[in-house]
Amino acid sequence: METRAAARTSPVRWGAAALGVLAALLGLRVATGSLPVDALPNAVRDLITLSVSVLVESLPFVFLGVLLSVLVQVWVPSSVFDRLLPRIPVLRRAVMSLLGVLLPVCECGNVPLARGLLIRGLTVPETMTFLLAAPILNPVTITTTYQAFGWDHGILVGRIAGGFVIANLVGWLFSRHPRPTELLTPSFEASCRAHRDHPVAGHRMRRSALGFAEESTAMLPALVVGSFIAGAIQVGVPREVLVALGSNPVWSVLALMVLAFVIAICSNVDAFFILSFGSTFMPGAIVAFLVFGAMIDVKMLALMRTTFTTATLARMTAVVALAALVLGFGVNVLA
């Protein structure tokens, strides 16, 4: 009798506890908000500011991605995907790479969504194709790239076509893998299997709560670590070296790809960022920056590591980097 009463009151209690934690955290912040800033050395201050900046910029997108992931896992029937997607694998992946049109989320929000798609039963290569293509093939990114460059030097066309081809190339390569589930981390693979073999029973709201808590638990620690690494690299690597190399015909493509990798900037706005340097960069280098950076960077690797094994990510990064290099040199030759 007593335990039943406790079970009935505990939802309210846990909700109130969470509210209490939030209030306590806000209280802590109000109390410390006006501490002196100058006590720390400049490098430490900038490390903190840069890491917090990456984190604060990405958090809303990750929240959105987690919510969409829960939506896909709990509220969208799996038959929807069977009905809408073609049966031939190549066409399925091609359609998946256009899914970003419906879900214009920044790339860091795509990772939780991709996990939701995997749990829903889509294959690993299909999900990878989505993950790599969606940051580029979505209306927000295409619009900002057009606003920044118009039709100049084939940059917009290079980005859209290059992004589509590279994402589908990676998807095709990994589809040749004999056991694609081995590309996933063991714990996430087990989680997918558990969802498939024992579909979570119970009220949808409750399953949504569980999904939100599990996805946050997978994503946020990785995001925090990724933001810190991105901030530390910013303090440690002098950017002027990369920018200076960016105007060199030979090194430009490689230099801007490294810049894209360390700066970990959202694909929705990276076109404006690179444009602000004026016309010093080769067009091929800009295309490589816009394609490679949208797919792979330090923060994305930290986030994707929650889902894919290190070996998988190393191979994926190598293929995308090589393809982006070829694309960059190709645009430089043609433009």
Partner: peptide, 12 residues
């Protein structure tokens, strides 16, 4: 996200 987190804590 704050509202969902609090509701999720209650519904888990």
């Amino acid at each position: 996200a704050g509202v969902v987190a609090i509701v999720a804590a209650a519904l888990l």
